[in-house]
Simulated scan of single mutants.
Amino acid sequence: MSDVILEAKQLTKEFSGFVAVSDVNLQVKAGTIHALIGPNGAGKTTCFNLLTKFITPTAGQIIYKGQDITHKSSAEIARIGMVRSFQISAVFPHLSVLENVRLALQQRTGTSMHFWKSESTLNHLNDEAMAYIEEVGLESYAKDTAVSLPYGRKRALEIATTLGMSPDLMLLDEPTQGMGHEDVDKVTQLIKKVSAGRTVLMVEHNMKVVSSIVDTITVLQRGKIIASGNYAEVSNNPQVIEAYMGSSSNATLGAH
């Protein structure tokens, strides 16, 4: 698929005179995994927060599926299929894995405020919830509380709750941050698996993850896009090398 699902046009964000994101033009193609990367202070988190409607742009436009969403809220865009995961923690620690995913389904179906109803009235959601739990490999943990899960499994649960919102575009914020190598590999493969039939936009610092699963990489520096393309193109771009290494002399962007 080559249709553009998400587009930013001349996106700009100023904070008290400081330009954090400057004139960013970005296209995310449907059915791909797209990563925003950049050195510390590059503006990638601010850009991601703009695209996911957690902050409002100073100027510019955001288009999702041909619709202008520049002034819509994060809740409004979630309802039309653009769902962000991996904020601080997207799960309720003392609910079970099944209950967490079921809550995401309740939110999608508009019954999330029905707290006064008997739990048995939610059992019709169990099969669908289990399907998402199985998709992320947590079926043996379905009755366990979220707080008891190992760190990598918590991230898998966050993906399952995101899937429960039926996203066309999944937005992942540093999905492997703070993980050991084994968990990084598991979550990387999980993102690859759940991206089938969906689009993923992610902020990611781990170049091994980016090089192994991402189709398109957009590199930011000082709030501006300096390169966009596949890993081979971006990793050999002199501007990118200089941004990361501080020098353009025979350095390459390593997958570490």
Rank of each mutant, 00 (worst) to 15 (best):
F86W: 06
E174I: 00
M1W: 00
S89H: 10
A232Y: 03
T188E: 06
Q189M: 08
D183V: 03
D23P: 08
M165S: 08
L138W: 02
I62E: 07
I133D: 10
D173H: 02
Q106E: 12
K208A: 13
V97G: 09
A232V: 06
A59M: 10
L26C: 02
K44G: 00
T176L: 11
S166Y: 15
N40W: 07
E99N: 03
E135N: 12
E76I: 08
H124E: 13
M1I: 04
T121M: 12
V28M: 05
L125S: 07
V240D: 06
A30H: 12
G152I: 05
H34N: 10
K72E: 13
N206G: 08
A156T: 04
V214W: 03
V214K: 07
H205F: 02
G17I: 03
A104V: 01
M170T: 04
T12C: 08
Q87A: 08
E76V: 10
S249R: 15
T12N: 11
I88L: 11
T252Y: 10
D3M: 13
F18T: 15
G31R: 02
P39Y: 03
E182K: 15
N123I: 10
A42N: 06
M179V: 03
T58I: 09
L95A: 05
K154Y: 01
V24C: 10
I191E: 07
D127H: 09
A8Q: 12
A196F: 06
A78K: 05
Q221P: 00
R84C: 10
V19F: 05
L125I: 06
S211N: 11
M207A: 04
L50N: 08
S166I: 04
I225K: 14
D185L: 13
I88S: 14
S228K: 12
H124M: 05
T252S: 12
A142I: 07
M202A: 04
A42F: 02
M245H: 12
E139L: 10
E139A: 13
K44F: 00
V194S: 04
W116D: 13
I37N: 02
S120T: 13
I217H: 05
Q239H: 08
S148I: 01
M179N: 08
R108W: 01
M202Y: 00
T52E: 09
G229S: 03
V240Y: 05
V234I: 01
E119F: 12
S140H: 14
R153A: 14
M113S: 14
D127K: 12
H34Y: 11
G110T: 01
L26W: 02
A227H: 01
P150N: 10
T111C: 03
S96G: 00
T45F: 02
G229P: 00
A131Q: 15
I241Q: 09
K117R: 15
K65I: 00
L190P: 03
G81Y: 03
D215A: 06
N25W: 01
G110C: 00
A20Y: 09
H71E: 15
